[in-house]
Design a protein around this nucleic acid. Structure first.
Lengths: 343, 343
DNA sequence: CGACCATAGGATAGCGCTGTCTTTGCGAAC
DNA sequence: GTTCGCAAAGACAGCGCTATCCTATGGTCG
């Protein structure tokens, strides 16, 4: 029983170890390790034996020991600003579907739209020595940037492209998306077009920039038609801001909401007060959440390709981890104007 | 430089180690370890010194080494059936707020309402040797049950109580909640009351049981007024099922939806087709999602105390980890009927 | 046919911490 | 003054793996 350290009182919970697997398969521990990881050159016959032994014992490698010995874990750190937004859930789901089959664990960090919290998460989770990072946007503290740099880890930035030169990023141009929203409302003959935004993260602001610039070029920009608030986006807030905006600027005939939940709240508030959408006011959302297609009237929106972004970002990260050079480090996945009844 | 193993080519990324902290503080590594963990008896003066040294070096303990040496990680495994439902996001947030300050990492496992996936997650994540488990409901495979049992880990079950005797659980009676829904619709004078459910997880079915039984007792149960589908719950599905139900059973005058998103879809579909709510049909939801209060008409619902459940479950788990005995292993957090315009 | 080399498998030595025992120091009790 | 007890700090060993070197084997080539 030399392979089993039960002679001395063991601290472990009695889970089988690699040593026991190796012993049962009649090979050395290191060969068992190699066989199970599929590394290098182990004869097929031995691989079979080791795998069988592992199965019989119900062996699961101890990730802590593995991480300590190899100086890295089998995890990928994904940092998102919120879990309350279905957008990021969809993205995470897509990431998961790519990384899980490769044996990588997805570690989710929610930084609640706070740069400081993101920095904290980085500091803590980098200690786990993940294989790579998937980050949202480019807006972060200088410390965070330094930690990412110093870690030397493969890193892909998701969602935005507008200031990602030199970085690996998968997303779409927030500025262009905002511009497209403006063009759409203009094309519908709207004259007094408002912009309502909450949360005010970088991507929302960039959307606003594109939107504003396009209205300016068309000579239709009026700063009085903007509501920006750092409060978190929600249906309730959308209702509130819609009422507030129409009370202050009754002549408005088109509104771009930086998020579908705000737009949904607006539609509900409009219905409540008999405001005709789109006749009196056209309403355009952003992200195209699943429920938007069922609103009354059905909400026009800009569909963001979060599933593809998640998938591609994860795939790109896999390539980086594998040491491949990336042909296209900046991947523009575009966006799609989804026209429904509300505009 | 005996404390720094740079003499030999090191595999590490050059992050400072406990040895270096200890050396700088002029103490032994084990004392530094104790000082930083706040364990046992280390003189205040030394603790101060060690903490200072750690700060100066930017030392962060290596969780893998820690886990390997101590035979457990600093994580708690939380298994939820979905992240698409705001219910579980709120629960997770609450859990986080309790466990994070205690230095415990929350590891999220999403099993997509699949028992097999839950079993897989358990098998994989148990290898990380978490400090405890927070699980959703009681419905799982026999294998899963055995793994939980065999792990010997503290475990708290969330959301349901109905079959949790002998276990530590925090939630509310799904059966009673269903019964309350039925009583409410009956109290509104409704005669032909329907039940619409999706997903069909155990908790949904229990709600249905309570609802059904109460209608039966009132002599108002009609199996033709039930729609059950395993499809995942969504606003779109709610619209669809509402239309389907009213087409088949136009005389229906009250509906209990097992989830707010379904009910929201129903309200939207009703508005679209001029069905008066609550005059023609009363609509009652479940969970009271944030947007429900802003629907037209405002949706009546049963508010489930997910934040408190998350918090209490996490606190109870902390107690179990600390080895305390729990005075009240079964905590009924109740539920609240939120009356709005739709009933 | 011997030097050479590629290849499969093993021996060794840690990775960076913490559990457990041991030692040290110092005041209280006799 | 000696013994005891207890608290504080350290020594030691090892958690369960894998990186790295090393050895044995058999084939290839001039």
């Amino acid at each position: 029983m030399a392979y089993n350290k039960n002679d001395r009182r063991s601290r472990t919970k009695g889970r089988p170890t690699l040593n026991e697997v190796a012993h049962r398969a009649g090979v050395s521990p290191i060969t068992a390790s190699r066989a199970l990881r599929g590394v290098a050159t182990v004869a097929e016959e031995l691989v079979r034996k080791v795998e069988e032994a592992a199965r019989e014992l119900g062996y699961i490698a101890n990730p802590a020991a593995r991480a300590l010995a190899s100086a890295h874990s089998q995890s990928v750190l994904v940092l998102v600003p919120s879990l309350a937004n279905q957008l990021f859930i969809d993205t995470l789901e897509a990431i998961h579907s790519v990384l899980r089959p490769k044996g990588l664990e997805v570690v989710i960090g929610n930084f609640h739209y706070s740069r400081e919290e993101e920095e904290d998460l980085l500091r803590n989770y980098l200690a786990y020595q993940p294989r790579g990072l998937l980050l949202t946007g480019f807006e972060r503290t200088e410390s965070s940037r330094r930690m990412i740099e110093a870690s030397g880890l493969p890193c892909v930035y998701m969602m935005d492209l507008d200031s990602g030169s030199g970085l690996h990023c998968v997303g779409f141009s927030q500025v262009n998306a905002g511009a497209a929203a403006a063009r759409h409302l203009l094309s519908r003959g709207r004259q007094r077009i408002a912009f309502v935004a909450a949360q005010l993260d970088q991507r929302t602001l960039l959307r606003g920039d594109g939107f504003r610039r396009t209205l300016q070029q068309a000579g239709r920009y009026d700063p009085a038609f903007e509501i920006l608030t750092p409060r978190p986006s929600s249906v309730g807030l959308g209702s509130e801001l819609f009422a507030q905006l129409l009370a202050a600027q009754p002549q408005i005939d088109g509104i771009f909401f930086c998020n579908d939940d705000l737009a949904q709240g607006a539609l509900l508030e409009a219905a409540r007060h008999g405001v005709k959408v789109p006749e009196q006011v056209a309403v355009l959302g952003f992200n195209d959440l699943p429920s938007s297609a069922f609103m009354v009237p059905r909400l026009s929106s800009i569909r963001t390709p979060r599933e593809i972004i998640g998938r591609r970002a994860a795939e790109q990260l896999l390539d980086l981890i594998a040491g491949k050079t990336i042909a296209e480090p900046v991947q523009d996945m575009g966006f799609e104007l989804v026209l429904r009844e509300s505009t």
